[in-house]
Write a protein that binds this DNA or RNA. Structure first.
Lengths: 155, 155
DNA sequence: CACGTTTTGTTTCCTTGTCAACAAAAAAGA
DNA sequence: TCTTTTTTGTTGACAAGGAAACAAAACGTG
């Protein structure tokens, strides 16, 4: 049990630190764009025909949040909105050329972040790394089960 | 490099899912309290003589955020504020009995969350678990170095 | 001690997100 | 087909936090 708590604490602070470091660079290199804007642009750039619901699920935010964010990105000419002729309900998004430029910069910075942390992965025992990935996968699968079980109970 | 990215993705979505599941229970069992309120109460309950700066560092938020939150918690009679006679600058906090009750409920729910995920830890190879914790520790230490290096460069 | 520097806490404005209520479209079922 | 249910996107009120500017207290050093 203490091990379990230690794991979770380790995990949360790890991500807190990474975000802290990344954020400083992002704020400087993509100064004209808010973090959430870049985040959404990156997702749309990586997922063809993404609609509001898909983006919300992918970013783990509500549809309301996505609806507002996409509206802003459209007015800033970073994404464009389109629909399927035989579906008047769903709304899809794609990047404009301006949005694509942001996505490219973001991808470059991400590689830079990876390089920053690369030593940790190079110095680690490959076996240890493998074991870690395996455990994270197992945990993720377990949580997926829990979530789908929750959803069926709710109904 | 793909391994590194896989690791980070795995990690982020893992925490997203845990938060999702926890949040549903918290919202129901501690309906009168916002997540951030409970979070702050838990920290103060676990750290004697916590001042604004200490809480901010511990929760990875700004002092401004803590200042606002503590003000609210005081008006809701969940914490109380006190100072040291020989220091007119720092402000410390402790839980009221009402706050203590919230902390206790929160602790109980946390145990419940741990029990929910216990199977993952029980079924995992102890060696695998050990390796995972070791890797997380190594990564955390590396980031601590990076952060302190950043701070010295800034100056 | 006195003066400049640092630390601490607060406040204001802005960004981001949730929740809940809603309307319109699509899907499901009788 | 017609009706009911579900899905999808939007909006408004509000919660939460960050950044920057600020005042007051504490510290450091000549």
């Amino acid at each position: 049990m203490e091990q379990q708590q230690a794991f979770l604490d380790s995990l949360s602070t790890l991500l807190d630190k990474i975000n802290w470091l990344d954020h400083a660079v992002l704020a400087e290199q993509l100064a004209d764009f808010k973090p959430a804007e870049v985040h959404t642009i990156a997702f749309i750039g990586g997922h063809q025909d993404a609609n509001v619901t898909a983006i919300a699920n992918g970013l783990y935010v509500t549809r309301g949040a996505v609806s507002k964010m996409t509206r802003r990105l459209i007015t800033r000419d970073l994404i464009s909105r389109y629909q399927n002729p035989d579906n008047q309900k769903e709304v899809y998004f794609r990047l404009t050329s301006k949005g694509e430029a942001v996505r490219a910069t973001h991808a470059r910075l991400h590689q830079q972040f990876n390089q920053r942390d690369a030593p940790v992965f190079e110095q680690a025992d490959p076996e240890q790394l493998q074991q870690t990935l395996a455990f994270l996968n197992a945990y993720n699968q377990f949580l997926d089960q829990q979530i789908s079980r929750d959803k069926t109970i709710e109904s």
